[in-house]
């Protein structure tokens, strides 16, 4: 897609909102589902997803209800918010990245040693939960919802950014009681997965339109720097994804 097309599509989205989705192409409808899922979130309303092409995989593989997904999305956005550098976690597709990761080997801990007995270990001994990552996310999101209600009598995504940060900080500092895992463990997983979703190859549904890479000036999957490695100056290179390598 050319730069011009990208921006005109963005402008169109800004002006028309998702209600206009029905009259345009399938790709656009798919990308608008991102917004539909986010429709109650004032911070994400009327935003495009970065002008990406068909997003048929913007759908749930792991989550079963929209409210849980919205809570996750709002949390990720606090970890990596939209700012003057560029898009935040939501626009970059990070919530879908995490949904898809949780549905796969990572969420199911298929490469982790999950035999008992299970004991709470020392911090130096690492992950000792009998729960897999998917289960930890489910419980963590449930606890985020409960804490928002008990502290503010509102849903998590209705809170101000400052209030959301307060709740997330309590999780990070391990101040929220959870069973089978800890709130700090959930927070660390969510934080790590958010950063992964920002910068992983776009084939995984995050890093939409390579915007994560562009912000960081990382050129993605380049085959060679042999002609540039000796340069005394910084070299700005248009990023390239694994998908584009396959099509060459």
């Amino acid at each position: 897609m050319s730069e011009q097309e990208k921006y005109s599509r963005r402008d169109f989205l800004k002006k028309s909102g998702y209600a206009a989705g029905g009259v345009v192409g399938g790709g656009l409808i798919a990308s608008l589902i991102t917004m539909q899922v986010m429709e109650d979130d004032p911070k994400t309303k009327n935003q495009s997803n970065g002008g990406s092409e068909d997003q048929f995989n913007d759908a749930f593989m792991f989550f079963t209800n929209r409210d849980d997904f919205r809570v996750l999305a709002s949390s990720c956005e606090r970890v990596f918010p939209e700012d003057e550098n560029g898009p935040g976690a939501i626009k970059l597709g990070v919530p879908f990245f995490i949904d898809h990761q949780l549905a796969g080997p990572w969420g199911n801990n298929t490469k982790e040693y999950m035999q008992g007995p299970f004991y709470k270990g020392e911090p130096t001994q690492g992950y000792q939960s009998r729960m897999n990552r998917g289960e930890i996310f489910r419980m963590g999101i449930k606890k985020l919802k409960e804490k928002s209600q008990s502290d503010y009598q509102k849903s998590f995504q209705e809170l101000s950014a400052e209030e959301q940060d307060k709740i997330l900080t309590a999780f990070e500092n391990d101040e929220v009681k959870m069973t089978g895992t800890t709130s700090a463990e959930f927070f660390e997983l969510m934080r790590a997965a958010t950063i992964e979703g920002v910068y992983a190859d776009p084939m995984y549904s995050g890093n939409r339109n390579m915007e994560g890479w562009k912000m960081k000036q990382f050129p993605g999957a380049q085959m060679s720097y042999i002609g540039k490695i000796e340069s005394d100056k910084f070299v700005d290179i248009e990023p390239q994804s694994l998908h584009s390598m396959l099509n060459k």
Partner: peptide, 8 residues
């Protein structure tokens, strides 16, 4: 200490 598995 009790040794625990390096689970990942």
């Amino acid at each position: 200490q009790r040794a625990l598995p390096m689970r990942q």
